[in-house]
């Protein structure tokens, strides 16, 4: 089975069927071992979608299947949550124990993993996020990025198939953000987990294989970063940014300068601009006035 998540016509409202829909007839399929970024402004339903993926919330209408399991099947609740690991925004509010290794063991204790296996998995999880040397530290003395890595390790210890992350970098400084992103990408490569990353940072979305843009409980754009960030106008209209390089291309094209639509990283941008400056790219002289 290559699809790990299948969301069919999902609608959700917090106050039952009469209330306004936070998610409105949403369809989404996610391939195993893909890296999907979810974008959208606050209140567009991203977090609600995430919580529907591991049965913290259950659909008001439609169906959610994860690893082939219907999330409304109560008897398999722990199967779902173990497979769909979830990391939240504030690292302080998801660390339970007062020592790092004991916190990572928390989920394993809940799942009734035997002791020897547990010790092994705690060490593996710590190594996977590069926090082995902090095994016996108190979480409140760690930096934001380190805390968030501990939180990720606490999830990874469950050996999930999918890592759902709800703005994991929003409260971190640039260094912490880089640490977390590097960790997530490594987990995807080395452990084959599927990653769903909800974020406001376009530079993080660019690193994904696929970008899903939500607005008003619906998916309005879905595709590779190159495809999604071509739609600068649409993204602006739903209050989202694009990477600076894509924004610049968009503006230059308004002057009829035939630069490529979607340039997302620094290297490509330098290449395109140097070609432009070498007169290799077509533009109408005098079409612009500054």
């Amino acid at each position: 089975m290559s699809e790990i998540i299948s969301v069919e016509n999902l609608s959700f409202s917090y106050g039952g069927q009469k209330d306004t829909l936070v998610l409105d007839g949403l369809d989404l399929k996610i391939e195993q071992n893909s890296f999907v970024a979810v974008l959208g402004h606050n209140g567009c339903g991203k977090s609600t979608l995430a919580k529907n993926l591991n049965a913290i919330l259950l659909p008001t209408g439609g169906k959610v299947y994860v690893c082939g399991i219907d999330t409304t099947d109560e008897s398999r609740l722990f199967d779902i949550r173990r497979r769909m690991g979830m990391v939240f925004q504030n690292p302080d509010n998801q660390i339970i124990a007062t020592v790092v290794d004991e916190d990572i063991a928390f989920a394993l204790e809940n799942l009734g993993v035997p002791h020897d296996e547990m010790v092994k998995r705690v060490d593996e999880a710590l190594a996977a996020v590069g926090m082995s040397e902090y095994k016996h530290h108190a979480p409140h003395r760690l930096s934001g990025g380190q805390k968030q890595r501990v939180a990720i390790a606490g999830i990874i210890a469950m050996k999930p198939q999918c890592l759902i992350m709800d703005e994991p970098t929003a409260m971190l400084d640039p260094r912490g953000r880089k640490e977390v992103m590097a960790t997530v990408k490594r987990l995807k490569e080395e452990q084959g987990v599927t990653v769903i990353l909800i974020t406001h940072y376009m530079d993080e979305a660019v690193q994904a294989d696929r970008v899903v843009v939500m607005d008003d409980g619906k998916i309005i754009l879905d595709g590779t970063p190159e495809y999604v960030f071509q739609n600068v106008g649409l993204l602006h209209s739903v209050a989202l940014d694009v990477p600076q390089s894509a924004e610049l291309m968009y503006r230059l094209r308004k002057y009829d300068i035939k630069v490529p639509i979607s340039v997302l990283n620094e290297g490509d941008c330098v290449k395109v601009l140097s070609e432009l400056l070498e007169n290799k790219i077509d533009y109408k002289d005098g079409a612009f006035d500054i």
């Binding site: 919580k51 913290i56 949550r81 339970i96 928390f106 989920a107 204790e109 799942l111 993993v113 999830i155």
Partner: peptide, 18 residues
Amino acid sequence: DAMECRCYNGGDGRTRYK
């Protein structure tokens, strides 16, 4: 929420790390 995501369900059937 975070505890639920980590399959917390009270004391029954838990094993101990320490």
